[in-house]
């Protein structure tokens, strides 16, 4: 794993860390923000493909994650993912969502490069260079 990958993973962990008690809602929030940015670049089809692949790969570790399909309604896009999370403990949700996000962004980075991926994620999650997560990105 390259240093830039590690940094991106750290950013994901930092973004998730402040909301362990919010579990499912916080997790879905990150996905919705990211989806908005990525869909504007690769369309619904491109995002769905990336998402389905990420879920498939994550299922080997978390078989209960059965949210393979996305809802066509933009405001309920991750309803299946949320349903999957609701049956789990916060720790499980945190771990599964962490792996799912990392897998998703790893695939994206493999397709379009680390720099562009980072740039998109910063926009998606409004990561400010002054906060902790932003510094991770700034240190790249």
């Amino acid at each position: 794993m390259q240093a830039s990958d590690v940094l991106r993973h750290l950013v994901i962990e930092n973004l998730m860390a402040p909301h362990p008690e919010k579990d499912a809602d916080a997790a879905i929030g990150l996905w919705e923000q990211m989806a908005t940015q990525i869909i504007s670049l690769v369309g619904e089809g491109g995002f769905n493909s990336l998402y389905a692949r990420s879920v498939y790969l994550t299922q080997s570790t978390y078989p209960w994650l059965t949210a393979n399909a996305l809802s066509p309604q933009a405001d309920h896009r991750f309803v299946q993912l949320k349903t999957s999370f609701e049956g789990q403990t916060p720790a499980e949700v945190y771990a599964a969502n962490r792996l799912l996000l990392i897998t998703f962004t790893d695939i994206l980075a493999a397709l379009i490069g680390e720099q562009l991926t980072t740039s998109i994620l910063r926009l998606a999650w409004s990561v400010d260079a002054s906060d902790k997560a932003g510094k991770e990105f700034e240190n790249e």
């Binding site: 504007s40 089809g45 491109g46």
Partner: peptide, 9 residues
């Protein structure tokens, strides 16, 4: 977007 979607898929 469509072109990118096709490339990603």
């Amino acid at each position: 977007q469509q072109a990118n979607a096709h490339l990603v898929i």
